[in-house]
Nucleic acid binder design. Structure first.
Lengths: 337, 337
DNA sequence: CTGAAAGCGCTTACAG
DNA sequence: CTGAAAGCGCTTACAG
């Protein structure tokens, strides 16, 4: 004797199943499912909806995507989830997309242009509804996608080709805040550590920092700065701090354009017997959640990444609606440690 | 005068385009694309391949998925990317899937069964090739998916329903290693901190720790332990440590079943003026990359998450090949700080 | 060795 | 108000 299959194991209902059960055509069911029933009798609608509910019908996204040449999938291209800030962006974007009825394919580009292009091409084949570019690189594929007008929002790092929908903080203002803060601590000659690579946003932070310092009377040539190449910000921080102190004393205050850079500088400070923040105050940007637990010595400008996802989806909606691209500047927090 | 469209902006070639250009049927092109050309003349193959190369044809994954009822998309369901260990699993899995020709949809379940089920259902509609369950929860949808025989591999946390393909370390052995290490440091009464929730793997670590201690002569009742509920391991660590020291002194050694729990305990130690590791040695599990930079006070059992992705893909391949499910126990590292 | 045809699940003019 | 039909891009028996 065979066990009766449980209801849940029955194959998913299709439009055809529903249509047959309701005694109407698939066209009619399709219209009702899509809310295009300005032209469907009330009885028909009721009957079809009953069948849909009873059978637990859900439109198949693949069939739909093929016909519409558009899916409910959004691609996120991100350079590295190892950075808690990038992870936070991914998390909030995933949640916001889900609330909007989309799912997210995660593409880790490792900050490599060829990988970015491979993914851009592959995602196009998936008929993705849009692209969330976290830290985009200049590349052939990017140019093509933009030329095509594919919906694309840039997060944290600007479109390397200029223009485009953007979500991020006001980096220059954040840098200026860091300058004000350090000055207010009585540190009149703070230095700055930055990454030399792929860094529109972090470069802006450094610029804002320096500009504010200069505006407040610090001679430009008195502002020590170190910039080293590299993709890992912790390593960049360590190396940049090394290069900075190789040419002089430890500064009493150090603006690090990201928390990861600050972590790197911190390690060198520890190795050098420099106490943080007593001997050298470290100011970062990101406000990683982990700081409160294990990096109380760090003062950081909090970036509300948990809100980025919402704004990213807003941007995508504008693009889908045909609106012109715009920038969304999310307000950053004050400095906290 | 209109600008000539650049080649890259031409719509993607389809099977039909290729077939027309090569003067053969789509069926023939399809067979060649799929390597089923045991029965295709050498000339035909050459001609078709030339056209494919010239037109840059790439099979459309959506059309293919619809027909095959199977896509090249794999779903990863993960409870929280905020945890660096989870992020590391996502990163390595994404890379391994990509190398195998798959893309990954990231589904953040927030450790909630309804969300897990929503995603399971949605992903089924996408005809995903398989599921990577990081920290699966017991749920109706999970039962159904397993009943259906959907390819599913469990990572870090076992299948709550028992059985199934698994990738993880030997948690009991890791706990035992922590016990040996603390004993070797001359700490004869170490305590243990754990999470009370959704924690097959972390519970195993605690068991292994306690069992080894007992085996080495520590009376079971002398082993202090604290277990508190909660999803955030940092908060769990803080609360568990609080509850532990509320009933006695700070122990000289504390085994924390995850690095995040150790971070939480660390904060309480700092607040209590307890020095780590001088007064209290903290041993964690995960070996987060960040430790080397900002948590040198932590000794941790390194879990090679960067290899998990490879094993996950191996597991999926076995399942696709119809093999029986098995467990892969990735060797964990020795204790490092 | 190759092609015509059916069909995966859906949408949408078009006709009635 | 509703349905038959075409077609999105692909695969695969089936026939030849």
């Amino acid at each position: 004797m065979r066990a009766r299959p449980v209801q849940s194991m029955e194959p998913t209902a299709s439009l055809a199943t529903v249509a047959a059960d309701a005694g109407v055509s698939v066209a009619t069911v399709s219209r009702i499912v899509n809310g295009k029933n300005g032209r469907a009798s009330a009885e028909t609608v009721a009957r079809v909806e009953e069948v849909i509910a009873r059978l637990g019908y859900r439109p198949n996204p693949v069939g739909r995507a093929l016909k519409r040449r558009a899916s409910r999938v959004v691609a996120m291209l991100s350079p590295n989830l190892d950075n808690p800030a990038m992870a936070a962006i991914a998390v909030s974007t995933e949640a916001a997309l889900r609330d909007a009825g989309y799912v997210m394919i995660l593409c880790d580009t490792h900050d490599r242009a060829e990988l970015q292009d491979d993914y851009l091409r592959a995602m196009r084949g998936q008929y993705v509804a849009g692209y969330v570019m976290v830290g985009a690189l200049r590349s052939r594929g990017l140019e093509e996608a933009i030329g095509r007008g594919d919906p694309m929002v840039f997060v944290a790092r600007h479109n390397p080709l200029g223009g485009g929908a953007y979500v991020g903080i006001d980096n220059r203002a954040a840098g200026a805040d860091a300058a004000d803060f350090l000055l207010a601590q009585g540190i009149d000659r703070p230095a700055v550590l930055m990454a030399a690579q792929n860094a529109s946003s972090t470069a802006e932070r450094a610029e804002g920092f320096i500009a504010r310092l200069v505006a407040r009377g610090v001679p430009d040539e008195a502002i020590r700065r170190a910039s080293v190449p590299g993709l890992s910000h912790v390593e960049v921080g360590y190396a940049a701090a090394s290069s900075l102190v190789r040419e002089g004393d430890w500064p009493r205050g150090l603006f690090c354009v990201s928390d990861m850079i600050a972590y790197g500088a911190y390690r060198l400070a520890c190795e050098s017997g420099v106490r943080v923040p007593q001997d050298c105050m470290l100011v970062g940007v990101d406000g990683n959640a982990i700081n409160a637990w294990i990096a109380p010595w760090l003062t950081s400008i909090r970036v509300p990444y948990e809100n980025f996802g919402r704004h990213v989806v807003d941007q995508l909606r504008s693009l889908w609606g045909g609106a012109a691209t715009a920038e969304i500047r999310v307000p950053h927090g004050s400095l906290t440690s």
